[in-house]
């Protein structure tokens, strides 16, 4: 009764048969997932379901015990994080990995500059004029898109959580990524901030045409912006479908309600 697994998509991120173990714990269990360019894909599930672990496996931060990760049809399973980023995969972090001692503008600019530096010794040391201009332009555009231009000179560590989330998003948007993984970008935001965040995501989709894979606890945001949603529970894919399908699904509701008793 094994379902036939579709071949990896060529227009975005594909995960096939992914399993990640921590000692005896199977954090992600035989997961198949696609996040194509130009679409907003949701990845939801209760705390500890394995969403962040899946992201880490996609960006090369952990070592899966089985399975493969593909970017635009190429198997990138054996590449390190920088090489995957060079091929168009960017991300943000649930625990926010900002450059705290740098200004907001420098944070965002580094989002582009890191990719320019790559793994070449000379390019890590000096930036050409041309690159410098390109970097500044990308940073200004990304800050504008996220509405944080007025924070440019503030130190990243001195901002509120909501502002920091936006800085991290802007930093990822300054890079030339074609697929972005966003890990709980609205956690720590209040109701208004979350609504604004939804607007920004929709603008990003409209203006950039990138593919977004969104891990999110705020179901109203997910229902509002996502095209397609995957639901994880205890590392297993328990449901996948459109937002309408999710709404009607008994399985999903049970998974969330089941967590309540714990």
């Amino acid at each position: 009764m094994t379902a036939v697994v579709a071949p990896p998509t060529t227009d975005g991120l594909s995960v096939r048969g992914l399993s990640v173990r921590f000692g005896g714990l199977v954090a992600v269990d035989n997961l198949d997932l696609d996040a194509p360019e130009g679409r907003l894909t949701g990845l939801i599930g209760p705390n500890g379901a394995g969403k962040t672990t899946t992201f880490d496996a996609c960006s090369g931060l952990n070592t899966p015990s089985e399975g493969s990760v593909h970017l635009f049809g190429n198997d990138v399973s054996r590449l390190g994080p920088p090489a995957r980023a060079q091929r168009g995969l960017g991300r943000t972090f649930q625990r926010m990995e900002l450059f705290n001692s740098l200004s907001v503008a420098d944070n965002v600019a580094l989002g582009r500059e890191a990719a320019m530096a790559g793994s070449n010794v000379l390019r890590q040391i000096v930036a050409s004029r041309h690159e410098q201009d390109e970097m500044m332009e990308a940073a200004a555009g990304a800050m504008e898109l996220c509405g944080i231009s007025d924070l440019a000179d503030r130190r990243a560590s001195a901002l509120s959580t909501g502002q920091r989330r936006l800085v991290e998003l802007a930093r990822a948007l300054a890079g030339r990524f074609r697929i972005l993984l966003l890990d709980e970008p609205s956690s720590g935001l209040d109701h208004n901030e979350t609504a604004r965040f939804g607007d920004i995501l929709e603008r990003v989709m409209a203006e950039r045409g990138v593919g977004l894979l969104l891990v999110e606890h705020d179901m109203s945001l997910v229902m509002r912006v996502c095209h397609h949603v995957y639901v994880l529970d205890f590392g297993k894919l328990i449901f996948e479908g459109s937002t309408d399908d999710i709404r009607d699904s008994e399985i999903v509701r049970a998974a969330y309600l089941g967590a309540e008793e714990v």
């Binding site: 900002l98 890191a114 990719a115 530096a117 890590q124």
Partner: peptide, 12 residues
């Protein structure tokens, strides 16, 4: 500040 962020943005 964050080697992880640097790496996931493409710098080795």
């Amino acid at each position: 500040d964050s080697p992880t962020a640097l790496a996931t943005h493409g710098a080795d």
